[in-house]
C-alpha cells in the first residue's frame, strides 16, 4: 500500500544538495583524518623527552623504531604475578599468646543493673 504511493523524484537533487553531501562527507572524513595524524604523533612527542633522558643517563640505548610502551598482555601478566604473590603472603605474627583483660566502657544500654528486678 505504501510502496504504491512512493514516488521517486530525481530532479529534487540539484547542485546544492550534491555539494552538501559531498562536501559534508569530505569534511567529516578530513576531521577524523586530522585527528588520526595528531593522535598518531602525540605519543612520539611525549616519548622524545623520555628517550633523551634515558639516553643521557646511559641506562638504555633506544633505537628510533623501538616503542617505549609495554604491551597490554605483558602488563596483564605482571599484574597477575603480583596479585598471586601478594595473595600468598601472610601477616607476620608475634607468636606470643597472652590473656588480656578487656576493659569495657560503661554503657546504660548494656548495663545489667537496669535489667535486674528487685
Amino acid at each position: 500500500m505504501i510502496i504504491n504511493t512512493i514516488s521517486f523524484d530525481f530532479s529534487a537533487i540539484t547542485g546544492f544538495e550534491i555539494i552538501v553531501a559531498v562536501v559534508g562527507y569530505v569534511i567529516v572524513f578530513s576531521a577524523l583524518v586530522i585527528m588520526y595524524y595528531v593522535y598518531n604523533n602525540i605519543p612520539k612527542l611525549i616519548n622524545i623527552k623520555i628517550r633523551q633522558r634515558l639516553e643521557k643517563e646511559g641506562k638504555y640505548k633506544i633505537s628510533e623504531n623501538e616503542e617505549l610502551h609495554i604491551p597490554g598482555d605483558v602488563n596483564a601478566a605482571i599484574s597477575m604475578a603480583l596479585y598471586l604473590y601478594f595473595n600468598e603472603l601472610h601477616d607476620k605474627e608475634s607468636n606470643i599468646i597472652t590473656i588480656k583483660k578487656v576493659s569495657k566502657q560503661y554503657s546504660p544500654w548494656s548495663s545489667k543493673i537496669y535489667g535486674l528486678n528487685e
Binding site: 521517486f8 523524484d9 530525481f10 529534487a12 552538501v20
Partner: peptide, 8 residues
C-alpha cells in the same frame, strides 16, 4: 540524505 530528497 540524497535518498530522502529523491523520495520527496
Amino acid at each position: 540524505f540524497l535518498g530522502a530528497l529523491i523520495l520527496g
